[in-house]
Design a protein around this nucleic acid. Structure first.
Lengths: 155, 155
DNA sequence: GTGATTGCAAAGAGTTTGCAAATGC
DNA sequence: GCATTTGCAAACTCTTTGCAATCAC
């Protein structure tokens, strides 16, 4: 457990508290724990995943699923988390301040693999420049079938 | 109205019929009209959009929304249409056989510029291979400010 | 103390499914 | 003729909302 990690978490927490303060909102146990769980589990959560995870670790909190949805929407508006869409199967959330990466999404199990590629990033800049387009962000997702699902057989 | 367009449509229709035949499925009025509407409207449809659109043009068909969902799933499995996800807000569908392209989306005017880049496409294949991921599709969108909006001033 | 937040349950939105009647092959 | 498909309505999944009690400031 490094100090660096804790310093990063404290920065994130301060940012969150500051945003709450500026909007006349309150810092509650539920919001605190939700952010902490997102931070400690470097993963992509569905709202239900997160709800069950927190219920199992903090049963005394008596958390409601509606609070998870409300807090995730709040965090997304604040730019602290980002979401990935899965049609009617909902969304998955992750912290927004992670180093930049893109996603490979398995159509069968819904699993997400992260990747990073400097060449593609560079090429995006080139393309934007060619079109005199001022680039501010991008979204790239690859869809297919992950190793595990491929092994399980071709149905 | 060029013949080329009609030939392309007929090819698509034959492909669809062939897939139906090979799977012991039937070629119905509903399936025919749904494919035709997707083809004639070079656009991204939600299932409901498509349902309302067809109801207004072919009221005598007495189409049910369930048939739209069932047919879109069928067409997606067959690789004839592809979908984009919008969380619990559902999906949008478009024909899969359009020439491949990605999108640059202006945050100010909402304008879309299409582009294509073989190097990025190749790199995506490489990345998938590195992870033993069976690639079936991808989504890439660049966000920023287009030339026109840049010229109009920096707000 | 006052207004924001919570858990709960009910309501909404989007999609799928069971079923009897209709249809394609 | 028989299996597939259809429209309808009900069921299902994911998310949001109304409300009274609770809590942060």
């Amino acid at each position: 457990m490094s100090n660096i990690v804790n310093i990063e978490y404290n920065n994130l927490l301060e940012l969150f508290k500051e945003i709450l303060r500026q909007n006349g909102l309150k810092y509650t146990k539920q919001r605190e724990i939700l952010l902490k769980c997102l931070y400690n589990n470097n993963d992509h959560f569905t709202p239900e995943n997160l709800y069950l995870h927190i219920k199992s670790i903090y049963p005394e909190l008596n958390l409601g699923i509606a609070t998870v949805y409300r807090t995730l929407n709040l965090l997304e508006d604040a730019g602290i988390v980002t979401s990935l869409s899965f049609g009617a199967q909902g969304k998955k959330y992750e912290l927004a301040n992670k180093p930049h990466h893109d996603h490979m999404i398995c159509k069968i199990c819904g699993g997400i693999t992260e990747f990073q590629n400097a060449l593609i990033e560079q090429k995006q800049l080139d393309i934007a420049k060619e079109h005199d387009f001022t680039l501010t962000g991008h979204l790239m997702q690859l869809y297919g079938i992950c190793v595990e699902c491929s092994k399980k057989g071709n149905k």
